[in-house]
Amino acid sequence: MNNVYIYNDTFLSLLNLIDYLILHHIKPYQIKNSQYQSTLLDNVVHLAIEEKDIAGKIVREMGSYSLQQMYYVFLSNVEAKELILYYFYLNGLKYYRDIFKYRNLKCVDKVLKIAKLVQNECHKYKGFVRFKEFNNHVLYAEIEPSSDCLEILSIHFKRRLKNEYWIIKDVRRNLLSLYDKKEFHIVDGTTFSLDNILESREEEKIENLWKAFYQTIGIKERKNDTCRRNFMPKKYWKYMLEVKSEL
């Protein structure tokens, strides 16, 4: 029987489900979130599981680094990420804190590589996000990340732009992060309207200053397009005013 187990989309509910399956010696065919479209051959299973302090358990057994890496994998857009986490956790209960030494295990290798990709993308976006000022006081930026970076970026900008109102929109997932000078709230893009916004008067002037700076700072004698693209792949360019025109 192709049992597909469904979790309710949060990281902790996924961990709880995986923990439950392992404790009951159930080997899942697949684990999927609530948006899963089942096929004829699937047997979709919703389990009512008692929530427990699963994050605490993982930190105690496998260390906080493991939990962090698992969270990054959860944020990725990798197809079978839930199963990878299942096998990772299964081995974690066997090797505990030594789990990362076992790089010859496929699940460990995958977790580390996927986590690295997600971390890299989040880090790149910390630099590449471009805000525009609207209505003379609201900063607005759009991103289109492969992995779900919005929360990590919001934590970053909350610390950095704490006295500003800002909005970051994940265009791909249609999610908005709204910051009100105290806390950020991630909401569905359909529940919040972005009408009535007007670019601030100064905006064009400042954008021109930045473009002029960008044009000037490169050294002609050292021109190196390959190097630039390695560090700043074209997928980011769409929302970056200084290179948008080169696309």
Partner: peptide, 23 residues
């Protein structure tokens, strides 16, 4: 009470035509 924070790892914000980081 103002704007700004530093990141210990440093952050590159763009890359110039010569491939050097603009931070």
């Amino acid at each position: 009470n103002g704007i700004g924070a530093t990141a210990f790892s440093g952050i590159c914000h763009s890359f110039a035509s010569d491939g050097r980081c603009i931070s």
